[in-house]
């Protein structure tokens, strides 16, 4: 099924554009703008968190101690690796290596899925320890300042939930791209799509780093 169409021969240009160059540039620019809005979406919650982190420093630091640093770090490692595989996929697709691209995409998807799994396990863990102040579930906090700790866990679930949602969207996106790659109809177009999704995936990576540092690392 691999085609021999060379990459420099651009695919079809959408009707509103003059040439493929304009189209590619517009798409990339659009994605960057979109990511900046995403950053601000998280930014609102980050800002709130930081305010309370300062006000209730001690309580938040202690509450952070109840998160599983091991699993969090493992997840960070997984996600960074998936960033690498995604970057490789971008390289490979540019060299029209269909099979290798596909492998890298699948690896990225797998790593992302494991991330979600671990995250789910962590949540379950917190649920079992009554650290999930959601939907009226009991909140039993063993340390000092249980109220502020509850606030901390509220943020924890909001932030990880929001990030998890973005991961799911990313996984969906990558799955579609993987299918397109498997079919290999219009390689230049696929290359562009891989590039755009790569941008998104990298962004979700970076977000996680921030979430991770704010929630897990600022502990006592």
């Amino acid at each position: 099924m691999p085609t021999t169409q060379p990459l420099n021969e651009a695919g079809q240009v959408a009707e509103q554009f003059n040439d493929i160059d304009q189209q590619v540039q517009s798409n990339l620019f659009g994605m960057w703008l979109f990511l900046s809005t995403e950053l601000l979406l998280f930014g609102g919650v980050f800002a709130g968190f930081i305010v309370f982190r300062v006000i209730h420093g001690e309580a938040f630091a202690a509450a952070a101690g109840h998160l599983d640093l091991m699993l969090g770090s493992l997840n960070t490692a997984l996600l960074l690796t998936s960033g690498l595989t995604m970057a490789l996929a971008e390289q490979l697709v540019n060299n029209t290596r269909r099979r290798a691209t596909l492998v890298m995409l699948l690896a990225t998807i797998a790593l992302g899925a494991i991330f979600i799994g671990i995250k789910g396990y962590e949540w379950y863990h917190e649920y079992e320890h009554h650290l999930m102040p959601v939907l009226g579930l009991p909140f039993e906090y063993p340390g000092e300042h249980p109220q502020q700790a509850e606030l901390f866990f509220n943020f924890y679930f909001t932030l990880t939930g929001l990030h998890g949602f973005h991961m799911l969207v990313g996984l969906g996106l990558l799955s579609v791209i993987a299918i397109l790659t498997w079919r290999w109809r219009d390689p230049p177009r696929i290359a562009r799509q891989v590039q755009i999704s790569g941008l998104y995936w990298a962004f979700v990576d970076v977000l996680w780093i921030v979430v991770f540092s704010l929630l897990y690392l600022l502990r006592s």
Partner: peptide
């Protein structure tokens, strides 16, 4: 592009707060 996402996040917090019963703005929790 730069301001609306902040509104989105704060509305999201309101919805989450009412829906899931968490309390980011609840004075009783600090």
């Amino acid at each position: 592009v730069l301001a609306t996402p902040v509104l989105s996040s704060v509305l999201m917090l309101i919805v989450v707060e009412r829906l899931l019963g968490i309390g980011i703005f609840d004075p009783a929790l600090g």
